[in-house]
């Protein structure tokens, strides 16, 4: 039977995580429940962090939006602040999983459990967001890359500058109407979206174990390149990527639809600008 500690402060939580390894922080618990159902071995000890105030806040700062790691996806989707300042993130949260999961699952769990399969990861990377971690030695700056290696400690919050890029596109490809993990998700943000030389970011998830940046594809899509050119650009973006081949789709299919999704996301962004 797994043990559970319920620290009353961030400091206590860090102590608990360090004191009795291998402990794992738990908030919504969705990922652990799924792993248990799939017969995987779970950690012996959990540290409940879902109620820590530092992880629960959605704050509009002077030039930034900060979101605690234990904010649920439903809260993200419904937050007026997020919907105003980071509508791409709100859209990604609203599209994830199903209503029951969104109520329970947290931003932090979503980012850390399956970083390569998280719609929110793609959205935050497209927004240029960074993270702050509570480490045994103290809290880091809000500058930790989201797609970097995960060290010790606790994901505290993610932070993106505001106002974010005015234009965004979100393409989540799934086979069924609901309840599916996506086959591929593409998030695009564009500054000065209507310009032929618009600048932006494009990230994809659910196509590889890690998030994939699609900068060449985005540039080709912005420039209204031909089908052949945009496909070639995607090949460049994916040259060092092992594309996932699973029950949802073959790697070949994912490679094929990424240019389509990027092109559509750019078109979305331009319509919004």
């Amino acid at each position: 039977m797994a043990g559970l500690t319920t620290p009353s402060s961030l400091a206590e939580a860090l102590e608990d995580l360090a004191a009795v390894p291998p402990s794992r922080p738990i908030a919504g618990g969705v990922g652990f429940l799924l792993r248990r159902q799939l017969g995987e071995t779970l950690p012996e000890r959990f540290v409940a962090v879902g109620c820590l105030p530092e992880l629960r806040a959605i704050e509009r700062l002077e030039n930034a939006l900060a979101i605690g790691a234990a904010v649920s996806l439903a809260e993200l989707a419904a937050s007026p602040i997020v919907r105003t300042d980071a509508p791409l993130l709100a859209a990604a949260a609203a599209a994830a999983a199903n209503p029951g999961i969104r109520t329970t699952a947290t931003l932090g769990g979503n980012l850390l459990d399956r970083p390569g399969g998280s719609d929110l990861m793609a959205a935050l990377l497209a927004l240029g967001a960074r993270a702050a971690w509570a480490r045994p030695g103290g809290v880091t700056e809000d500058s930790v890359p989201l797609d970097g290696p995960v060290g010790d400690g606790l994901l505290l919050r993610v932070r993106t500058t505001v106002p974010t890029a005015a234009a965004w596109g979100f393409e989540r490809l799934r086979t069924r109407g609901a309840g599916d993990r996506p086959t591929a998700t593409v998030c695009v943000t564009l500054a000065d979206a209507r310009a032929e030389n618009a600048i932006g970011r494009a990230w994809a998830t659910s196509v590889a174990p890690r998030p994939v940046e699609l900068s060449e594809t985005l540039a080709a899509a912005i420039a209204a390149a031909s089908d052949e050119e945009i496909v070639a650009a995607t090949d460049v973006d994916l040259r060092d990527v092992v594309v996932v081949d699973d029950l949802r789709a073959t790697a070949e299919y994912r490679r094929r639809v990424l240019p389509v999704l990027v092109r559509r996301a750019v078109a979305q962004a331009r319509r919004r600008s």
Partner: peptide
């Protein structure tokens, strides 16, 4: 069998 759960065995949902 290549599928043993209802996450990967995709039944139609109400949204379909």
């Amino acid at each position: 069998p290549d599928v043993t759960d209802l996450l990967d065995y995709r039944l139609p949902t109400i949204a379909d």
